[in-house]
Design a protein around this nucleic acid. Structure first.
Lengths: 134, 134
DNA sequence: CTAGTTGCAAAGAGTTTGCATGGCG
DNA sequence: CGCCATGCAAACTCTTTGCAACTAG
């Protein structure tokens, strides 16, 4: 067994709250560290990585390795997706859009029927340019 | 200006030929190094990175940062895609499928019409499980 | 002969781990 | 008081760069 007890600490809550406040946008561990440093209550990078990993394992956060960036990005899973949505990420400004659109929602089912390939929407990010950056 | 002359060397050709032989599958710089080491003609990692970068810039190869893997993956661009295809990658076996399917081909146009979001098929990889691994 | 190419080693960026200290319950 | 959490520094992985030797044309 891994861990018998989990304390609720201010740092853990602070990190999760910060991620939640970003509304599903992608952020790196380093950016989190910078935020708390600027906010006047710095948190060690190692601690941030440890918490992020834990959030990932408890399903509160997703971890991505995105094109164009060297490191990993983390993303808070807002509320509960009844039907997890394929995401769109702007290559220019980095914004993540969670579009609700019948077309996108049907992709997994169509691809599965046609090719027996089972798409995992949680992992899938479509890259492109958002309306603002076009 | 960057480079006035380009020699055709055996290593450059060997690396590109190896990538081409993989038919669009993803491979890391380290895997390339291992291949040539086992083949009896080892190539320094630095050299491999230098060639891969050059291939990327000349449009022969694409570079991805994939989920679940720490480093970058490279992928030979087979022939010429008249209509660049969104790719499907199996999370289990790592295989890359280039499916031709009207549904997939229509995604960029539909999303653009509905949300003014311009998808870049070259960058986009859908994750999931391939038929063999299901 | 000249300029691009190669390998080695060192430097960098991002991430993980070990260990001693500190705090929650 | 026992455990978990935290910070620091060291270890590690992946990638890039500097430099001297080498090679294609």
């Amino acid at each position: 067994m891994a861990r018998s007890k989990t304390y609720s600490t201010r740092q853990r809550e602070a990190i999760l709250a910060y991620l939640a406040s970003l509304g599903g946008q992608h952020i790196t561990a380093n950016q989190v560290a910078l935020y708390f440093e600027r906010a006047g209550s710095p948190i060690g990078l190692a601690t941030i990585y440890r918490h992020l990993d834990r959030f990932v394992q408890s399903g509160k956060v997703r971890k991505h390795h995105l094109d164009g960036a060297p490191g990993a990005c983390y993303q808070h899973i807002a509320g509960e997706h009844p039907h997890p949505q394929i995401q769109l990420k702007c290559e220019a400004c980095g914004a993540v859009l969670h579009l609700h659109c019948s077309m996108l929602e049907e992709i997994p089912a169509h691809v599965y029927q046609a090719h027996s390939f089972q798409i995992n929407p949680l992992k899938t990010v479509l890259y492109g340019k958002c309306p603002n950056c076009l």
